[in-house]
Design a protein around this nucleic acid. Structure first.
Length: 579
RNA sequence: CGGGGUGUAGCGCAGCUUGGUAGCGCAACUGGUUUGGGACCAGUGGGCCGCAGGUUCAAAUCCUGUCACCCCGACCA
């Protein structure tokens, strides 16, 4: 491609709407343009990158035996009614009507469609297992689009679904996808970690998120450098403190005026925060949004409650719970703001963190203004409706696997895989006849890659950008080589540039030829900004057949004969283009 | 959905307090001089000052409403 023939425009100034490096550079390099909040157009150079990523995804999916199809973005409401998600999905779903008033949505995902296709096409166990995938636009009307394509309202996602006879087969498919995803993200040049993820109250057994590590990411993960443990903070298990071995002392009520926080109580009584019990009060709602019941959760005073774990323990959804109004709750349950403890509480569901069971002689609120109880013990003084791990694993806490202090990191979730089991196949009737002629539900898994998010996340990797612009990995670069011709119109330079251009093209290299009538500085700046991995500069020494050869990611430049430069370029492209 | 902020030329911004003919830098276009890291000189074009209403002789500026966009939070199969 000659630059003089293309629509090519870069921007010198940082666009006011962008904050993080990847978003700034995509806009400055002219790879994307915003159409509306969270809605973008891919410009020629950016679209080439997206297509490269898609191609990598295709190759890895095909290698695992998945087949590509393409479903409509428009999906009828009936399918979603069947799975129960038409009501459950909420305002994030773009809903539209056809001319006859029939409701449709712009697909936010495609479990229902794939299940529908498969139920009408599968009858026998002999047809299983198989996997289908597609790479299409997905639509989610996000409450808050952010950071360009990191969280956009319309994005490109590869989604695929596995269909197996049983749980064991499903886990084989899951493992295949785990491998495929690892290959995809490695080839795209991402630094990432697969982390154990939460899959909600009614999800399947297994889920992993693939998180590209990056300080601008929206997800937070906990990981261990001593072992393989890595999980989202919502999911990360917590190793309980060792049970106390001392005797239970008699419980006592003490006056603790004005000590509403854990810190204040601990200071007042001269205790460690770990010798106290923290109370958190909630109210839950049913599906219609009516108040259902009060919930009191208790964790050790120095711990942090993990909402996801609480919600899972209660078997409800995140939006069906909220902090309770303590005054309103007092009437019914006897709680007292700032002085609530598990003893004396009534008419509410009590959820106790598992480690409290083994700890002795703790201090808790007395459910009475300005009073606390000391020497409170589980079993003797109070019990729970549910005992489970409710804690958030914080940086420095012991690793649940090996006990070493864990680390936290931020990242961008570029992919997620999870087992669905029969969540969709049972309600939607996706069944088959097994060897014994019995009708069984199909076991499904679903797997997603955010292609457009990956596109942006690649740039945010520290090694893939610098102060001058993007540094594309060869595998996804819009072009492999850029020929920077210093002085178009100069006979020797024109001739040599053309020779190199044709030579590279004939070797299957993707070449951009900057033949614009611009000053050298502008050309160098643009070449750096758009991040083409190899630059061949045709300048003063064109007459003797000498060019300058430079890699975008390295500082040194070398003068080479044009033949050597072509050879070097072909070598490095061949070596690196597969990722 | 709550809090904060911004809408003025393609991009980045000033002007608004205290109403009086809409400005600057970059980009674009023309001519010239330049030519290995975002050149210089001279000239040119380009605006419904987000939109609607109001106050006023007069509104980018003051008032009311509304829309859009950005940031923090809530939310996120």
């Amino acid at each position: 491609m000659k630059l003089s023939d293309s629509l090519f425009k870069t921007f010198r100034e940082v666009p006011q709407e962008a904050e993080i490096p990847s978003h700034i550079l995509l806009l400055r390099a002219g790879m994307i343009r915003k159409t509306a909040a969270g809605i973008y157009t891919y410009m020629p150079m950016g679209w080439r990158v997206v297509r490269k990523i898609e191609q990598i995804v295709r190759e890895e999916m095909d290698a695992k035996g998945a087949q590509e199809i393409c479903t409509s973005i428009l999906q009828p409401s009936e399918l979603w009614e069947e799975s129960g998600r038409w009501a459950a999905y909420g305002p994030e779903m773009w809903r539209i009507k056809d001319r006859n008033g029939r409701p449709f949505c712009l697909g936010p995902t495609a479990e229902e469609i794939f299940t529908d296709i498969v139920r009408s096409g599968v009858d026998s166990h002999r047809q299983l297992p198989f996997m289908l995938y597609q790479i299409t636009d997905k639509f989610r009307d996000e409450a808050r689009p952010r950071y360009g394509m990191m969280r956009s309202r319309n994005f490109i996602m590869k989604d695929n679904y596995s269909f197996d006879k049983d749980h064991e087969g499903m886990m084989v498919s899951y493992q295949k996808m785990f491998e495929a995803y690892t290959n995809v993200f490695n080839r795209c040049g991402l630094t990432f970690r697969p982390v154990e993820a939460d899959n909600g109250a009614i999800g399947g057994d297994s889920s992993h998120e693939f998180t590209a590590l990056c300080e601008f990411g929206e997800s937070e993960i906990a990981y261990c450098e001593s072992c393989d443990m890595a999980a989202t903070v919502e999911k990360a298990a917590f190793r309980d403190a060792e049970p106390d071995t001392c005797d239970m002392l008699p419980m006592e009520k003490v006056l603790t005026p004005g000590t509403k926080t854990i810190e204040e109580v601990a200071n007042f009584l001269g205790l460690e925060k770990s010798q106290t019990i923290k109370a958190l009060l909630f109210i839950t709602y049913d599906e219609e949004g009516n108040e259902k019941e009060y919930v009191a959760a208790f964790v050790r005073g120095d711990r942090e409650l993990n909402m996801t774990k609480l919600v899972n323990a209660l078997g409800i959804r995140e939006y069906e719970i909220a902090f309770a109004d303590e005054n309103a709750m007092h009437e019914k349950t006897g709680c007292v703001g700032g002085f609530t403890g598990p003893v004396g509480l009534h008419d509410c569901k009590v959820v106790v963190d598992s480690e409290l069971v083994g700890l002795r002689n703790l201090c808790a609120g007395a459910c009475e203004e300005d009073h606390h109880l000391i020497n409170v013990n589980y079993g003797r003084d109070y019990t729970a409706d549910i005992v489970t791990d409710l804690k958030t694993l914080k940086e420095g806490d012991p690793c649940p696997c090996c006990g070493k202090p864990v680390k936290h990191a931020r990242g961008v979730e570029v992919g997620q895989i999870f087992t669905l089991g029969t969540k969709y196949s049972v309600p939607m009737g996706a069944v088959f006849k097994d060897e014994a002629q019995e009708t069984k539900p199909i076991y499904m898994g679903c797997y997603g890659i955010g292609v457009s998010r990956t596109f942006q996340a690649i740039i945010d990797m520290p090694e893939n950008h610098d102060e001058n612009g993007i540094i594309w990995p060869m595998s996804v670069a819009p072009y492999h080589v850029i020929i920077t011709e210093m002085k178009p119109g100069d006979e020797a330079q024109d001739a040599l540039s053309e020779k190199i251009y044709n030579e590279l093209l004939s070797r299957g290299i993707e070449v951009l030829w900057d033949d614009r009538d611009e000053r050298p500085g502008v050309k160098f700046k643009d070449a750096d900004l758009i991040g083409i991995p190899v630059r061949i500069t045709v300048g003063k020494r064109a007459g003797e057949g000498v060019v300058e050869y430079k890699l975008r990611r390295e500082a040194d430049k070398t003068d080479l004969s044009w033949e050597d430069a072509v050879r070097e370029a072909v070598n490095i492209v061949e070596r690196e283009k597969r990722g």
